[in-house]
């Protein structure tokens, strides 16, 4: 351990203390070990899923052949893409509205806009269930229209997040830039498109990735809005998990974990990229 003992530990270098390192290591083990075991055993050639019996892609093949699961994944990705597109527009407009204007009941509107973020998921799921039942929302529409109820619910809880992120970005905007554009003859729309929008872009991208991940991950609210023909990936995995622990569920879960890691990496890379170009 001579590597760590080159200099004396300063009083505030808590991170270099042994007990602290042990604590961090234990916590990371607690956080990661179950996920790593899950991923490792998705490659295990054993039905009972405990003893290592050799490497295989068999269960990934089974997942790809499982029509129900693949349809659910397709539904999830479609819903996430639609919800992200709508959330970007609604969230950006909401952010600009709150950032730019003074209007009556502004604090109330601002508070209400944050509500979908804080309301317990179960309450929101119940509200959506009751709402669509009350409206007699048609459930037998052709794909992808049959996903409309879930998509609407997802947009409702995603766009306030986009609004929050974009608004934080707008706080650093120099309003004189927009005024200069207008002085030089730009119309309201041109100033928005050519000055404000480029400034908001990193916020919008971050918000979009957040919305996509939130939509892809959501279980509780979807559980209350999905019907027998509109199963999403998490809802399908839930019904499989309730049934038993199998390598196939491991493989399906691992696919979603890889997808999340990929999205997160893209998000981080994009942020670095926008920082470098800003």
């Amino acid at each position: 351990m001579s590597l760590f003992k080159r200099t004396q530990i300063a009083p505030l270098e808590y991170t270099r203390r042994l007990w602290m390192r042990a604590w961090i290591a234990a916590t990371l083990f607690f956080l990661y070990a179950p996920l790593l075991v899950l991923i490792a055993f998705s490659f295990n050639d054993s039905k009972r899923n405990i003893v290592w019996r050799g490497f295989t892609f068999k269960y990934y093949g089974k997942v790809l052949e499982n029509d129900g699961l693949m349809a659910a994944l397709g539904n999830s990705l479609t819903i996430a893409a639609l919800a992200t597109a709508f959330s970007i527009v609604l969230g950006t407009l909401a952010a600009v509205m709150l950032w730019r204007f003074r209007f009556p009941f502004k604090a109330g509107v601002e508070g209400t806009m944050a509500l979908p973020i804080v309301v317990p998921e179960i309450c929101m799921g119940v509200a959506m269930l009751v709402f669509f039942a009350k409206l007699d929302w048609p459930t037998d529409l052709p794909w992808p229209l049959n996903l409309s109820a879930i998509t609407i619910a997802h947009i409702t809880f995603c766009f306030p997040f986009v609004a929050m992120v974009v608004r934080a970005r707008l706080a650093g905007f120099n309003k004189e830039q927009e005024e200069a554009a207008k002085d030089l003859g730009a119309t309201e729309w041109q100033a928005f498109r050519d000055v404000l929008l480029p400034h908001m872009k990193p916020g919008i991208i971050a918000g979009a990735l957040l919305a996509f991940t939130l939509s892809l991950d959501d279980f509780v609210i979807t559980f209350f809005t999905s019907g027998p023909n509109t199963i999403t990936f998490p809802v399908k995995v839930y019904s499989m998990v309730r049934f038993s622990v199998t390598p196939e569920v491991n493989a399906a879960s691992a696919i979603l974990i890889f997808l999340t890691i990929l999205l997160t990496t893209v998000a981080l890379k994009l942020q670095d990229f926008t920082k470098a170009t800003a």
């Binding site: 179950p34 899950l38 892809l216 279980f219 995995v237 998990v241 622990v245 491991n250 879960s253």
Partner: peptide, 13 residues
């Protein structure tokens, strides 16, 4: 950022 359901399932396994 990993799905809540999957983290719960991982813990169950």
């Amino acid at each position: 950022w990993t799905n809540l359901l999957i983290r719960t399932y991982a813990l169950i396994t």
